[in-house]
């Protein structure tokens, strides 16, 4: 049950056994936590910056990784600009790529 990967190997069953053991250990540690925790009280209520969160608030998918996208924006905007959605541009890219491929197979 071991997959040889040239430089090493991979045993998913060993990994799974270790993952189960770590999970059980984490649960055991958690069970020794604070006894004064009470479900359904304000202890478990979400809050935003110290304020009580309004009902029904959901941080939508588009908000995740906002900072990450902002940091990469110069690169991403160039990529987005290349994806115009115009079929003429698609054909242009095909012609450019084909020219590159031809040069490579004929000259290298």
């Amino acid at each position: 049950m071991i997959l040889e990967t040239f430089e090493g190997f991979w045993s998913p069953l060993v990994w799974t056994a270790v993952a189960v053991a770590v999970t059980l250990l984490a649960l055991a540690l958690r069970s020794r936590g604070r006894r004064d925790h009470k479900k359904g009280t304000e202890q478990t209520a979400p809050f935003l910056s110290g304020e009580a969160a309004p009902d029904g608030v959901h941080v939508g998918g588009q908000h995740l990784y906002w900072g990450f996208v902002e940091a990469l924006r110069p690169y991403i905007e160039r990529l987005r600009a290349a994806h115009t959605g115009f079929v003429v541009d698609y054909v242009t890219w095909l012609v450019v790529a084909l020219a590159g491929i031809m040069l490579l197979v004929l000259l290298v």
Binding site: A82, G85, D89, Y90, L94, L98, I101, L104, V105, L106
Partner: peptide
């Protein structure tokens, strides 16, 4: 070699390789 280049172009496009992936 020209035939190889043409085959590579057509098949890489249909496989969706960048920069021929936009479709």
């Amino acid at each position: 070699q020209i035939a190889l280049g043409l085959l590579l172009g057509g098949l890489l496009m249909k496989a969706g390789s960048v920069p021929m992936h936009m479709w």
